Amino acid sequence: MNFHWASVSCLRVTTNVLPGSTPRRGQNPATDHNVTQALVVAGGLVYAHATDGLHFLDAATGTPQTKFPVGSDGLSKSLSEHAGTIYTAVSDGSSYGSTLYAVDARSGQQRWKLRTDRAVRSTMVPSDKAVYFSSGNGGPSVLHAVDPSSGRQLWTATLDGGFWHSAPVVSEEVAFVCAGEKSGKSTLIALKAR
């Protein structure tokens, strides 16, 4: 993966192109792999999820630190950090499922993974007690809570009428999520964590 790094200093923009980042015809000049909408900055690093893996880059210079490989499809819009762990969900390509990964934020080593039979459709929201996310395949959505240290599923809840859904928001162990129908009607749902 090649990144095009820019820094702003006193309203003057300087651009640094990382080694090997010469764009090929028809490609994005910033990268030779698709960077998804998943970016996180924490602990002096930028975590960028691309089709070839999860990249760890120095936040000040853009220098690659390490990479966690994912499947060949590797598409993700979900990337979160909490307590030294990066959580990401990767679509399984032709199937409707996803695989969730917990990765050490410094070493890039996998801590655990969990396969779901539905596509993860929201950002994962990690806390000390659970990692919350919603999933769905065009029918009712499901809100999940998994153990942040093991990946063990703690509970799930079907969101009635939830054709689409927001990322969950968690406050004092109550998970809030908005679920909507094709008709445009939406419902705010609050679930007490079990």
Rank of each mutant, 00 (worst) to 15 (best):
G71L: 12
T123I: 06
G43K: 08
K77C: 04
G44I: 02
A38E: 00
R121P: 10
V120T: 06
G84W: 00
D160C: 08
S150Y: 11
S141W: 10
Y101K: 01
D128I: 09
D73S: 14
S78G: 13
D52T: 09
R106I: 15
A38G: 03
N34K: 04
L45F: 13
T116W: 07
H49T: 09
A89G: 04
S141L: 03
P140A: 14
S95P: 02
L39C: 01
A30Y: 14
D73Y: 12
V146M: 11
S134F: 10
G97L: 03
H33R: 11
N137V: 05
A119H: 12
G151S: 06
Q65L: 15
V70E: 04
G162V: 01
L159Q: 00
H49N: 10
G136L: 07
T123R: 15
W155E: 02
A83T: 14
P69G: 12
S91C: 09
Q109S: 11
H55G: 01
P64F: 03
A38S: 09
Y47T: 07
T31Y: 11
Q109R: 12
T36M: 05
L114K: 14
A130Q: 05
R152I: 09
G108Y: 02
G53Q: 05
H165M: 08
A48H: 04
T85G: 02
G136A: 07
Y47M: 02
Q153E: 15
Q110S: 11
L79A: 01
S149K: 15
L154A: 02
S150I: 09
A42E: 02
P29S: 07
H55F: 10
H82E: 00
T36L: 10
A59P: 06
M124N: 09
V125H: 11
V125M: 06
H165T: 01
H82Y: 12
H165V: 06
S107Q: 05
G136N: 13
G108T: 06
T66P: 02
Q65T: 13
A42F: 04
Y87Q: 00
S107H: 07
S98Q: 03
V125F: 13
G53M: 07
A89L: 06
L45K: 14
L154S: 00
R111N: 15
V46E: 00
S149P: 13
G93Y: 13
V125C: 01
A59I: 09
H55R: 08
S78R: 07
G44Q: 07
R118L: 15
S150T: 15
A59R: 10
V40P: 01
A157G: 03
A60L: 08
A38P: 00
Q110C: 07
Y101I: 03
H33A: 09
S91H: 06
G53L: 08
S95M: 07
R115P: 15
P148G: 05
T99P: 07
D58S: 08
I86T: 05
T31N: 08
T158E: 06
Q110L: 13
G84M: 02
P140I: 01
V70M: 06
